[in-house]
Simulated assay, not measured.
Amino acid sequence: MAAILAKKLGMTQLFLEDGRVERVTVLEAGPCPVTAKRTADRDGYDAVQLAFGATKEKHLSKPELGHLKKAGVGPHRHLVEFRDVAVEAEVGQSVTVEAFEAGQKVKVAGTSKGKGFQGTVKRHGFGRGPVTHGSHNTRAPGSIGAAAYPARVFKGLRGPGRMGGERVTQPGLEIVRIDADENLLILRGSVPGPRNGLVEVRTDA
């Protein structure tokens, strides 16, 4: 299983050689230096830690700078561990988009766009109430509880609340094209998060 960190640049369309139009998302993936490797014998699990997003030293703490310096890597903004990932690169070397191939299926994880506090119609797709005869419950959720028994609202009821801003994993996305010179991954479909958001890309094994 290959993995890499990427920045979502946005969506566009791509004309293929057979004339078809693909709706695609463009990701700026890597290069991601390997900053640590975890082993079952020493750490209790197998994982590889990748860095992404070169930045200035003043934006990092001294422990973070020391960790990166020990790995022989410059200052990077993001550090993410990937479990059960086979990476040939050693600590200090980089993982690039060349670890993937066009036609591969990948899954992309990221933080979805925050929508703020939303009602049941937008958040859960509830239908609206009547809009005539003086009705005042057009977008109201309706009755939510019982009577004297159980005299409470059951946990897990779908109600209003904060929407979005959660970790979302989108599986089954196909790599349409790879641009190794520009470090670009072009995927069919949409991925979670806003433009310039950090996403994690893994082969969908």
Rank of each mutant, 00 (worst) to 15 (best):
A2E: 03
A3M: 09
L5R: 04
L9K: 08
M11Y: 11
Q13H: 15
L14T: 10
L14F: 11
F15N: 08
L16W: 04
D18C: 00
R23F: 12
V24E: 01
L27H: 04
E28L: 09
E28Y: 08
A29T: 04
A29G: 04
A29V: 05
A29Q: 03
P31Y: 02
C32Y: 00
C32T: 07
C32Q: 03
T35P: 00
T35F: 01
T35N: 00
A36D: 15
K37H: 02
R38H: 11
A40S: 05
D41M: 03
D41G: 12
D43S: 12
D43R: 10
Y45N: 01
Y45A: 05
D46L: 07
D46P: 03
D46A: 08
D46F: 00
A47V: 04
Q49G: 10
F52G: 00
G53E: 02
G53A: 03
A54P: 02
T55L: 01
K56S: 12
K56N: 07
K56Q: 13
E57L: 02
E57K: 14
K58I: 10
K58Q: 10
L60C: 08
S61M: 06
K62D: 13
K62L: 13
P63W: 05
E64P: 01
H67N: 08
L68Q: 14
L68K: 11
K69N: 11
A71Y: 11
G72H: 13
G72A: 14
G74E: 14
H76S: 03
R77V: 10
R77A: 14
H78W: 15
L79H: 15
V85Q: 14
A86C: 11
E88W: 07
E90S: 10
V91K: 04
Q93L: 04
S94C: 10
S94G: 03
T96P: 07
V97L: 03
E98I: 06
F100H: 02
E101C: 07
A102D: 05
Q104T: 06
V106C: 10
K107A: 08
K107C: 13
V108A: 06
V108E: 01
A109R: 13
A109F: 09
G110A: 08
G110Q: 11
T111I: 15
T111F: 07
K113H: 12
Q118W: 04
G119E: 09
K122W: 05
K122V: 14
R123V: 09
R128F: 07
R128C: 10
R128W: 04
R128N: 07
G129A: 04
P130W: 10
T132N: 05
T132F: 13
H133C: 09
G134F: 04
G134K: 05
H136W: 07
T138N: 12
R139N: 14
G142A: 08
I144S: 06
G145V: 02
G145A: 14
A146M: 07
A148E: 13
A148D: 11
A151E: 07
R152F: 02
G159P: 00
P160L: 03
G161D: 03
R162G: 06
M163I: 04
G165T: 00
G172C: 09
L173N: 00
L173T: 02
E174P: 02
V176K: 05
I178Q: 00
D179F: 09
N183M: 08
L184I: 12
L187S: 01
L187E: 02
R188V: 09
G189C: 08
R195I: 11
R195A: 14
G197K: 06
V199C: 06
T203R: 15
A205F: 14
